[in-house]
């Protein structure tokens, strides 16, 4: 699933343009599994399963599998349609150094939502 998603991200020219200032690693958690996304100039250059707990990147975004499955539906239900809506409902956790996340908020929102089936 992650591999297909990364192809979607890296082939989305507009998304990469939007994230051209982003150079960092962050943790994306799905249930028990954490993945380290390494990003250079908006492109995801590697994703590795997080095994060393002291490696977390700049920040972490974590949700249960069912929450992400709903977020990635073609038309997500209310509260699952945007990571900030999910945050308001405490369906996900975001913590760490949030400055680069907030500086590029729409990029990260779009990057995460890009795993939707119907995404343009």
């Amino acid at each position: 699933m992650i591999e297909t998603w990364i192809v979607k991200i890296n082939s989305n020219k507009r998304l990469i343009e939007k994230g051209r200032w982003v150079n960092l690693t962050f943790t994306f958690g799905i249930g028990q599994n954490d993945y380290l996304f390494e990003i250079i100039e908006g492109k995801v250059i590697s994703t590795t399963k997080r095994t060393i707990l002291t490696r977390s990147g700049a920040f972490k975004i974590h949700g249960e599998k069912i929450a992400w499955e709903k977020h990635w539906l073609n038309i997500p239900p209310r509260d699952y349609h945007d990571i900030f809506a999910m945050l308001a409902k405490k369906l996900i956790i975001i913590d760490g150094n949030l400055t680069p996340f907030m500086q590029n908020l729409q990029y990260f929102k779009d990057l995460i939502a890009s795993n939707r089936q119907s995404i343009k």
């Binding site: 038309i75 997500p76 349609h81 945007d82 990571i83 900030f84 809506a85 945050l87 308001a88 949030l98 400055t99 907030m102 500086q103 908020l105 729409q106 929102k109």
Partner: peptide, 29 residues
């Protein structure tokens, strides 16, 4: 449900953060 200080500080673009914050409040349809 979020800290308002993110909306007004020199290291974050005000227009972009405002837009990104409220984009969560628009329906996908």
């Amino acid at each position: 449900y979020y800290d308002l200080d993110w909306l007004y500080r020199p290291d974050i673009h005000g227009g972009l953060i405002q837009s990104a914050f409220v984009s969560s409040q628009i329906a996908p349809q």
